[in-house]
Amino acid sequence: MSEPGARRDTSEAAAELLAFLRRRISGDYEIDEFGFDPEFHDRVMIELLRPLYRHWFRVETLGMANVPADSGALVVANHSGTLPLDALMLQVALHDEADRAVRLLGAHLVYQLPVLGHLARKGGHTLACPEDADRLLRKGELVGVFPEGFKGIGKPFSERYRLQRFGRGGFVTSAIRAGVPIIPCSIVGAEEIYPKIGDMPMLARMLGLPYLPITPFFPWLGLFGLVPLPSKWLIEFGEPIRTDEYDTEDADDPAVVFELTDHIRETMQQRLNELRVRRGLAFSGIF
């Protein structure tokens, strides 16, 4: 590139940055009814997470073509890793490689905590409740859910890659009601970032938390113990499962919902087993 061109690029970038800062300082930006702030999401959150995605966990994605380009769908993923970094990496994957903002459904706890709840809303996420899920799917959004919840993310290291129970299948009900496809998503790698080898249930209860993990490094190394181990990650988006062939009344039929939930769970468990073999050792590239 020639010299003047490069200079123009720099000044354009500077002007754009100034315009961005001016909008932020004057409050002149738009959020949606859930509090999603697309500009903040794209230009701050994703930028901060991308180094972790690319260079720390070296995330590779598979089956991205199964994610619809602009219509509603429900991504159902396994949950692991003690802290929800898998949610954040899923968000980067879908932003960078499918150009979609995934709207994750989170636990009540997230929205009760200061800072965290606010950032989650800015990032486009909301509370896991049927009203919000239905509303987002009706609007054609890409919604993401971790049906294992705390049972999945807080499970001990010895149970890694073993899917836990899938709640009450509320996510299947929402998908059938909206007639959107369900995309099973398998995440390999998050299990090894904070290997949970123990728990402090008494202290957790005192702090109002679902669990308080002991890992090889936490709490022994204090805040350094919060640095995630650099495991190698794979995220696979499986074949979409259609729900538009069901009647809307099926959404309220527990037998249909449980059957479909089980089917999705089995598919995901199978894919997890295969992906785990395919990835090989979690830390092979480093040690």
């Binding site: 909301t126 509370l127 009203e131 919000d132």
Partner: peptide
């Protein structure tokens, strides 16, 4: 409330 849907409709 943090435990309520993000958007209330008349039936909530």
């Amino acid at each position: 409330s943090p435990n309520a849907p993000a958007v209330f409709s008349e039936d909530t």
